[in-house]
């Protein structure tokens, strides 16, 4: 679910943007700094919603830019525990299921959090749920899946620097900065097609 968060920050507006109205140039700079980034303890920042306050610009010796203190609200994606979300299965692993939502792909459903009677089939690389002896329900890759949010985990990638969530800037073994742990244990969760 999305929330609005209020943040205060000092933003540098470069001289090249001096011809643009200040609100617009500050919004652009804020987007550069915050969009698609995880703020520790907060969530994934999507975009600026509105700018509430703009202080007078300050200059520093030896710098052509102007520093503007600003208070703004931004859209933050932050699911809460107990929320039901929809996504697509990215990968089935012996440890659980990875789910993607397009704009956010660090979602993991641990095997302990799957329905009782779920089995991992090595041959098909898929999870199978057996609600009773005769039925076998497969969870295949790319299938639409609903899950319940259990917890969110923030990893401090670099304490001083905000980290982009896109794959380009991350090397393979680095931990993602924000992970959602999900579960499929209540009725209505699991593959969407099961419940229709």
């Amino acid at each position: 679910m999305y929330i609005l968060s209020e943040i205060e920050d000092l933003i540098r507006v470069p001289p090249s943007s001096f011809n643009v109205p200040i609100k617009l140039s500050v919004t652009d700079e804020l987007h550069q700094k915050y969009s698609n980034r995880v703020v520790g303890g907060l969530g994934l920042v999507v975009a600026v919603w509105d700018v509430l306050q703009l202080d007078d610009g300050l200059i520093r010796p030896g710098d052509g830019g102007v520093f503007v203190g600003t208070r703004f609200r931004c859209i933050v994606w932050k699911p809460f525990a107990g929320e039901i979300l929809g996504g697509w299965v990215l990968e089935c692993l012996p440890l659980g299921i990875k789910v993607r939502m397009g704009f956010f792909d660090e979602i993991f459903i641990k095997k302990e959090y799957l329905f009782e009677g779920c089995e991992y089939k090595e041959a098909e690389k898929a999870w199978v749920w057996k609600p009773d002896a005769d039925t076998e329900l497969y969870i295949d890759v790319n299938e639409k899946i609903r899950f319940r949010v259990e917890e969110e985990v923030f990893n401090d990638v670099k304490a001083t620097e905000l980290k982009a969530t896109d794959g380009n800037t991350q090397s393979g073994n680095e931990k993602p900065s924000y992970v959602i742990i999900g579960s499929c244990q209540v009725e209505g969760t699991g593959c969407v097609s099961w419940w229709e």
């Binding site: 679910m1 609005l4 968060s5 209020e6 943040i7 920050d9 609200r73 932050k78």
Partner: peptide, 14 residues
Amino acid sequence: MKVVKPRSEFLSNY
């Protein structure tokens, strides 16, 4: 950067 109000408002997907 200072987070003033982490959750000032809820937003619907729409």
